[in-house]
């Protein structure tokens, strides 16, 4: 006889798995309406703590060599592969076994795909520019800093990775609000991140109500860019978030319709990495 040890789904902040500061949870049901687990109902202070962790980790993550970031991200894919069955089980609450399997495999593929771009995307998005004058003029991408990512409900794990991997590969750190309807696999992804040399604070995962957390996230002045992909179905929330982001001069990005075809391989692109970078142009004097 064995005892069924069930998992408490918690947050992933600063490399640890805390419960909400507020102590709140909400029920996660499967597609037939049966309770599967309780997830954390994140609060404003959880968001605050996550942003502090992301800010503290950002410089160190960006300072690592691009090659080293690629190695670490590849390692994440390895650990995800080892947890493949668990991801499938968690996605099965919402979709068929075959669909869950397809999604997990596509997720791991996508993670590896973006890992490889770490030391290559700058060749695509950067440039050397012809200018009239004795200057060598070139443009290089640099991470924007701390990014808030709001994940959608469809393809909860694949969409999460399709936005987070291109975000952190350039040296950003992020605070991710997982799918509100299907958060469980995202929390398990936190366990893969925690065991694969990704420094604590680089990815911080919150779960909870989008309508509650997104306005706080958009208004937080220490978040440099907010990805509102997960708000696509809620026009009023997008407007609120865009206004709040404008007040603190944060950039707002959304997945393009092409990017949002999550399962389609053509939705992945090095230009998605470009959504999360700033471009620096240098005028370097040279001989006449």
């Amino acid at each position: 006889m064995s005892i069924d040890v069930r998992k408490t789904y918690k947050l992933y902040v600063n490399g640890a798995f805390p419960r909400s500061e507020s102590g709140r949870t909400y029920p996660v049901n499967n597609s037939r309406g049966r309770l599967v687990a309780n997830a954390v109902l994140g609060s404003r202070k959880d968001l605050r703590d996550a942003v502090i962790a992301a800010r503290a980790a950002q410089n160190g993550w960006a300072k690592r060599s691009a090659y080293n970031r690629a190695q670490i991200l590849y390692r994440v894919a390895e650990v995800m592969q080892g947890r493949r069955e668990q991801f499938i089980t968690e996605l099965r609450h919402g979709v068929s076994a075959a669909a869950a399997e397809r999604e997990v495999d596509a997720t791991i593929d996508r993670w590896v795909w973006y890992a490889g771009w770490a030391d290559k995307f700058a060749q695509i998005t950067g440039a050397s520019n012809p200018v009239d004058g004795p200057y060598f003029n070139f443009t290089v991408p640099e991470p924007v800093g701390v990014v808030g990512v709001v994940c959608p409900d469809d393809a909860p794990l694949l969409a999460f990775v399709s936005r987070v991997a291109p975000c952190i590969v350039s040296g950003n750190t992020c605070v991710v609000l997982a799918s509100e309807r299907w958060p469980l696999a995202s929390v398990t992804l936190g366990e893969a991140l925690a065991t694969s040399d990704v420094p604590g604070g680089v990815v911080n995962i919150l779960t909870g109500r989008r309508a509650e957390i997104v306005p706080w996230m958009a208004g937080h002045a220490d978040i440099d860019t907010i990805d509102l992909t997960g708000c696509a179905g809620d026009r009023a929330l997008v407007v609120t978030a865009e206004q709040a982001a404008a007040a603190s001069v944060s950039r707002v990005v959304h997945a393009t319709p092409r990017e949002a075809q999550w399962a389609n391989e053509s939705s992945q692109s090095p230009y998605t990495i470009g959504s999360f970078v700033e471009y620096k142009t240098v005028w370097h004097p040279k001989g006449p």
Binding site: G219, H220, D222
Partner: peptide
């Protein structure tokens, strides 16, 4: 303001 601030400001 009710909004979290950034040190850079």
């Amino acid at each position: 303001t009710g909004l979290y601030q950034r040190p850079d400001d």
